[in-house]
Design a protein around this nucleic acid. Structure first.
Lengths: 201, 201
DNA sequence: TATGGATCCATA
DNA sequence: TATGGATCCATA
């Protein structure tokens, strides 16, 4: 898996110059690089079929697994509750200097990407999080996956919102990353879809 | 249909003391009050079945349709493009003093409610909107509708985000309303998907 | 019950 | 192709 875009929305209080940030940054980049399809192939190659229609293209659920396993090996905590009332969990957290850095792997609907960034921004405002990163497919990759999943280009026009919220943050980083397949091919297995949503209707 | 909660997230620049705001406020309140089920019953009574599982509970689309038709009769413009690149349409807009006031009737997934508020807040930051209102079911009503649709209580913990963004707004109002059925009953028809919204007015 | 997610749909 | 849905799933 490769990274094709990277955007820092908030960078306050000098956190980005600390060694703990370098550790986090390295973990995130390597976690993404570790993702392969087919498993063990050394690359990430999607089945070459667009995902807009019922039963076509690639499902998204298994893609996230390798990333989470890598992070857990590096000491990150998965499905972590930030402890804010009414606010749910984030996919992963790294504990640093008594605070938490969150990671959200977005393969839900694009609207869910709004909630992910809102959640991390809110927790930064509250002082719970020292930062967070949202990882989601590029528009290019998106076309081969389940219709309407989150993608970098579609959330981009809303970036000014979270950048503005940075005004109220004392310290921390809010980061968004676009990922993409290394290639597409008819020779690799399709990533199977589940039976969620309207799949059975 | 009744209103059970109402929250002003942003109120800046004295817009709330203008006659145009009183007109908008009145239209919104009456649009909600006009919605009936069954048709012509003088009340909004939902079929008494929880909506969590496949094929159960009440659909949501016709409820929204009825509200939109009422607003159109009052001169609101439906499915209105705000003209911001990459930002889509809002459900309805009322033109006032060369600016626009938006209305979003939220019957999508709860994560879509985040996008709705993000969209209106962004357009207020950009100076395109003079304000906006998000209308969505209360947690009580939510249980009788399609699973995971937007509901007031679930978005409430995120309110501080949009309140903070008000700092950057010169003038305008951002408003959230929780609606609820007057009653539930096994004697009324289930609200089916795709019914003509006019039947509910 | 509560929350994040995954999957197709409708329409311009 | 692009964008806002509408609906059901998985799991604690």
């Amino acid at each position: 898996m490769k990274i094709v875009k990277s955007k820092i929305l908030i960078d306050k209080g000098g956190f980005s110059s600390l060694p703990s940030w370098q550790r986090i940054r390295s973990d995130v980049l390597q976690a993404i690089a570790s993702i392969q399809w087919p498993p063990g192939s050394g690359a990430f190659v999607l089945y070459d079929e667009l995902g807009k229609r019922r039963g076509e293209g690639n499902g998204v659920k298994p893609i996230k697994d390798a990333c989470m396993l890598y992070l857990r090996e590096q000491g990150w905590l998965l499905e972590y509750d930030l402890g804010l009332p009414g606010i749910g969990k984030v996919d992963a957290v790294y504990l640093v200097d008594g605070k938490q850095f969150a990671l959200e792997w977005e393969t839900g609907n694009i609207s869910s990407s709004h909630r992910s960034l809102n959640k991390m921004a809110l927790a930064m405002l509250k002082g719970t999080l020292i930062g967070g990163v949202l990882i989601l497919p590029s528009r290019i990759m998106y076309r081969y996956l389940t219709d309407r999943i989150g993608n970098f280009e579609e959330i981009t026009p809303y970036f000014p919102l979270w950048e503005a919220l940075g005004t109220f943050v004392n310290i921390g980083i809010l980061w968004v990353i676009a990922i993409e397949q290394d290639a597409v091919s008819k020779s690799v297995p399709r990533i199977e879809k589940g039976r969620d949503g309207r799949a059975l209707m």
